[in-house]
Amino acid sequence: MTHDGYHISADEATEALRSRNADVFRNIYNAYSEELYLLAYRWVKDNDLAKEVVQGLFTHLWEKGPEITITGNVRHYLYRAVTNRSINELKRRARHVSEEALQWQADSVSLHEITDHLLLQKEIMRLVQDLAPRCREIFLLSRFDGLEPAEIAAKLGIAVNTVYFQLAVALKHLRTHLLNGKKLE
């Protein structure tokens, strides 16, 4: 019996879909749904739509399960599926499809690179939740909203130096926990 979704092989996954094994299906969902959400978000740049793409993929896997054969690596199979769905959704809504998404070659090198990148993002999201509220707010305004430090300072009515200080606190926190970084002076 496999309990950890990350170690489910393609054959086990195919069999689970065929026999509608809800336990295995749930393990796969728990293991990969967040990464798939991040990957979908990378292509569609819209968190609601990204979630919809992921839920749509799993609904499809469940409903068409008996007709689906998963080959190779389960994670890579899901990455390809979610990328295709993202592109289709963008086209369907007549939204712009980035060159990057279209050019994305699902070869093993880019799959491994993107896996590392998504796992890093997954950790970043978790660690950002640990930041003090003000620090998190400033970090998100900079990173997510793409505001310049001066714009953040003006928006929040604080000194630009405070913005730099808080951004540095956030970045050090990430580095200390993620890259085994030594504590910075």
């Binding site: 969902y29 728990n30 749904s33 967040e34 959400y37 991040l38 978000y41 990378r42 968190n47 990204a50 979630k51 992921v54 839920q55 990148h117 890093l120 993002q121 970043i124 999201m125 978790r126 950002v128 939740q129 970090f139 998100l140 990173r143 997510f144 793409g146 970045l171 990430l174 580095r175 993620l178 890259l179």
Partner: peptide, 18 residues
């Protein structure tokens, strides 16, 4: 880290709720 954080969605994914 700076660049990876820029591409992160604003709302985390809650797989339990999902």
């Amino acid at each position: 880290l700076w660049e990876a954080a820029a591409a992160v969605p604003p709302v985390p994914f809650d797989s339990e709720q999902g």
